[in-house]
Design a binder for these strands. Sequence first.
DNA 1: CGTCTATTTGAATGTACTCAAAAGCGGTGG
DNA 2: CCACCGCTTTTGAGTACATTCAAATAGACG
Lengths: 198, 198
Amino acid sequence: MWTPAQQLILQNIGKHIELRPDEQSHFISLLDSKTIPRKALLLKEHEVCRHSAFVVAGCLRGYTVDANGFEHVLQFAPPDWWIADMYSLLSGKPGQLNIDALEATEVFLLAKTDQEQLYRDIPRFERFFRIITEKSLVSSRQRVLDNMSLSAQERYDQFCRQYPTLIHTIPQKQIAAYIGVTPEFLSKLRSKRKRGAI
Amino acid sequence: MWTPAQQLILQNIGKHIELRPDEQSHFISLLDSKTIPRKALLLKEHEVCRHSAFVVAGCLRGYTVDANGFEHVLQFAPPDWWIADMYSLLSGKPGQLNIDALEATEVFLLAKTDQEQLYRDIPRFERFFRIITEKSLVSSRQRVLDNMSLSAQERYDQFCRQYPTLIHTIPQKQIAAYIGVTPEFLSKLRSKRKRGAI
DNA sequence: CGTCTATTTGAATGTACTCAAAAGCGGTGG
DNA sequence: CCACCGCTTTTGAGTACATTCAAATAGACG
C-alpha cells in the first residue's frame, strides 16, 4: 500500500494524532516528493517559503549568512524531521534562511495552502502541528539558554550528547557554525579534549 | 459586562480566533486571577508548571540560574503577553525556569487541564495556541541567530529597537541577563555609545 | 589521480569577563 | 517626609576565552 517513505511520514504523524485510512490517503496525496542533490538549495534567502519539508533520507541544513559572510546554522534536518523558514512561511514575506542539502536528500513537500486546507478538513492536523511547534519551541529556548550559560567546550559536549549520530556524518565546520564558534576554535577544543583523555 | 482585564485577554484571543459570547463567558470562567507582589515567585525551578499565565498589568520575568549562580533571562512578560515554563508544562516534569515579578503584577492563570479541555470543547483554541506558539518559535529562533551573529553592542541596540518601552522600566542588570552579557559590560557599552554620540 | 575543501596548528589580537571599589538610586521604615 | 540601607550602576585594571590571519596537512569528490 505505502512506500517506505510514505510509511515514515505517516508514522511521524501517528506519534501525535490518529488518522483513518482515507485521511491517510488524502494527506499523502497532498505531498510532493523531491530529491535534492548534495549542496543544492531547497530554499534561498530573500525568497518566500511556501512549503514545509519533511526529510525522508539524507540531511538538510537551515542557515543564514551574516553581514560579514559567516554562516550560522539554525537547524539540521536528518530523516524524520520537518524543516521550513517559519518566519517566511507564516508571514508570506521573504526570509533570511537558506536551506540546502549536506548530502543527496529525499523530501516530501507540503504546500502552505494545502496545510491550511488540512487544518479545516481534518482539525487534528491543527493539533499535530501545534504539538511539534511546541516541541520545537522548547528546544529552541533551551538552545538560547545553553548559548548564554555554557562555554564553547560545554556546548560541543552537549551537541555530541544530543545528536550522537550526526557527529560522524556532518562536517565539523557545520557543527562549529551550529554551536557558534569558528571552525579553527572547534578544532582546538577537540584536540585539547583528546590530549586530556590520554 | 467585562472588566478591563477581561477585555484585554479577550482582545488578545480575538487577534487570532473569533468567539461567541457564550464561549467568551466559558473561557473567562476558567481563569484564575492573581496578584504577584514585586520580587515574588510565580514559579520556582524544580517545580512542575501547571498553568499558563497571561499578564494583565506589571511585568514578569522568566529566568534560569546556571551552575555558577548567574541568572539568564529567557523572557520578559509585559502586559498582554503569555508566559509559562513550556518544557515543564508540556512534559509534566520539574523544570528549570523561575518566573518572578519585576513589579507588582496582575495575571490570569489558565490551568493545563482546563487548556486541554478547551481544545476538545472549542477546537479554535487549538488554533489560537498553535498560532501564538508559532510566533514564539519564530522569535526564539531569531534570538538564537542574533546571539550567534551579533556583537554585544548590536544585541543591545536590537533590544532597544525591539522593546522600546521596556528599556525604561526594567533594570539594566536584567537587560544584560537577557542579551547575554555581564551588567558591568553593558554599562561600559552604554557609556561608550554615549561618548560616541557627543 | 588531481584539485578543491576541510581540518589542524601557531602566533597575535580583541571582545567580553573578573574582581574591586566608588557613586548613584530607590524603596522602606522611622 | 526624610534618611538610611541595600541594591544597581559606573569605572578601572588585569585576565581569559575565543577570534583572526596565515600556512601546512589531510581528506573527499569527481
